[in-house]
Design a protein around this nucleic acid. Structure first.
Lengths: 336, 336
DNA sequence: CAAAATTATTAAAACGTTTTAATAAAATAA
DNA sequence: TTATTTTATTAAAACGTTTTAATAATTTTG
């Protein structure tokens, strides 16, 4: 249970250098000795110590995964799923992920991730909206870095993103195709880049079908984008007294909030008003009626990010640029 | 950006040994030199390399977290939350978690976690039901180990568990107190240790209130414990034609499945039948009507497990035994 | 056949810490 | 005062790999 490279070298009658070269399958090793060494490794049950390898090679085999505390602790496991996607992919590639969170008001003197200081990662994934102070800081470590579900101009970083515009476009096109002409948009807070893009998609789809956007059907001045904001937004919309037959919400949480208010006011879903969300969270399938929504493959987002960052770390590629992950409309009962 | 212990030693005019002792705050260092060294460390922005420390000290500062693939990929993020609890606690203690999954039919020759072979963890958390073949295997590494939400006799392991019996007992007592006498139990698959305990709590509560258990109100012969099983179980129960005014389900997924069938058959909730679940998943608050359920603090489960296992690793304690995490009844509308 | 080129192997240094046993200096006891 | 104990510091070995430059052996070329 404590066999080292020396034991293997001795038993196989080669130098430790040779064993090392075999392990790292270096080409300059004859087939004969390679086989002999591999056999001894097998017999002895040898496995190189991670710490020794890292110390000598300066490669850790770890990827750092950073998200902000508020993303980490939100009840809907959106970023958790992204993390799991990365984790899953990491296993296939023999990498481990070190996860850490930072506060929204990141200060490098207080919150610097230990794995950066201790040189314990080869690459970095930053998930969700992160402060630029963090970006400035991590840049200094010159590690391959990929953003997930976030992008900022001015930092030449690769990013893996949801194709929000197209997702929204398809969802709205679907409503139009079902005969709806007066479709409301429930956006909550437009500061969120995703929500902004979804609004773009909404406008785009309407334009494509020759429908003018009625701005009184767009609600986008709420503090956030949660369940409560969906409720508030729908109240506001109903109070405006403008007719509409469908609502496209910026995400599922708001859609579900909106549905609750509609039910409270005795509006039948989908008969009187059709509702469509975005994200396809756990809850979407379970509410009554089940919510039609735009499916976002969170696991895939994380997986692609990991793949990208590992390829950068192994110098297999120089850049990943922006990668858009496609969405898929999931039709359930809330849209009729 | 590449300052080592030698640089600190040179600048502070001490040996590297002294610097090391200061870092690890060894008592045999005078206050004067300690301060001087700390000052130079600060000035130089020195941080010890994790790999070098690990190689020399044989302490990694990592905890391995193992769960089975099916637990990992279930849609309800139960074990994910436990993991996040551990992760959160780990950060406070300057530990990192290495997560990995193993298949249900674990075979050490194929699926041995790399972090074990490469000696990359100081301790182990095993979450959920894991095969005994895994337990047999991990035992050989002689690492401090804690089980979460699972326990097996015969392995002298510490465990952090949900207080299922009491949680179920309180839930059923609450229904009795609301006047219900004919309360069904929807158990799904009794193989699950948690479900078995919840059934025990159900029986206990009824006994405590002098109500005989009508076995025709207990459904426990379904393949699993998911949404589908809740549907199937409720159909079965209704087909039995025995009257009941309340259902206590073994978990939220089954409770929600049962609610759907009740609605389908035109049974009003909670007026005709009250429904109570267990776990307090994300969905519970979002379904219609919102589900009364027994809240399980998954994050706390993970946090306690980490605390326990770290204390074992740091030899601050020898055993943790079984730790029961209390539950809390969350009353919503599904129970009237 | 000798010279040159190629292939396979290894010695030894390096990676950056911790830790042990030894030592020097200071404090205390006799 | 000297002997003893205590306190603070350090030299040097150890941890287990990778990697570079050198060397030896083999093959190819002229």
């Amino acid at each position: 249970m404590a066999v080292t490279i020396k034991d293997v070298a001795k038993k196989a009658e080669v130098s430790t250098a040779t064993v090392s070269l075999v392990i790292n399958n270096h080409p300059a090793i004859s087939e004969a000795t390679r086989r002999r060494v591999l056999k001894t490794i097998e017999e002895l049950g040898y496995h190189p110590r991670a710490s020794a390898r890292t110390l000598a090679s300066r490669k850790t085999g770890n990827v750092g995964f950073i998200l902000t505390e508020d993303h980490f602790s939100r009840s809907e496991p959106f970023y958790t799923k992204i993390f799991l996607g990365s984790e899953f992919e990491a296993r296939d590639r023999n990498f481990y992920i070190l996860l850490t969170t930072i506060p929204r008001d990141f200060d490098e003197r207080q919150h610097a991730p230990r794995f950066l200081l201790e040189r314990n990662v080869d690459a970095l994934i930053l998930a969700g909206k992160v402060p630029t102070s963090l970006l400035d800081y991590t840049q200094r470590f010159r590690l391959p870095t990929v953003l997930v579900d976030y992008w900022v101009p001015g930092y030449d970083l690769s990013a893996v993103l949801i194709d929000n515009i197209n997702g929204a476009r398809e969802a709205v096109a679907y409503l139009v195709q079902k005969g709806h002409r007066r479709i409301a948009f429930l956006g909550g807070d437009l500061q969120h880049p995703s929500i902004k893009e979804r609004l773009q998609g909404y406008r785009l789809a309407l334009a494509e079908h020759g429908i003018d956007v009625d701005e009184s059907l767009v609600v986008a001045d709420l503090p956030d984008t949660g369940f409560d904001d969906g409720e508030a937004g729908m109240r506001q919309l109903l109070d405006r007294q403008v007719p509409f037959t469908a609502v496209f919400a910026g995400n599922d949480a708001m859609a579900i909030g909106a549905m609750r208010i509609l039910r409270e006011r005795g509006v039948r879903i989908p008969d009187e008003v059709a509702v469509v969300g975005f994200d396809d969270t756990e809850a979407a399938a379970l509410v009554t009626p089940p919510l039609t929504t735009v499916h976002v493959d969170k696991v895939e987002l994380g997986a692609v990010a990991l793949r990208c960052v590992v390829e950068l770390a192994e110098a297999k590629r120089k850049r990943c640029h922006k990668i858009l992950i496609p969405t898929r409309l999931v039709i359930r009962e809330s849209s009729g």
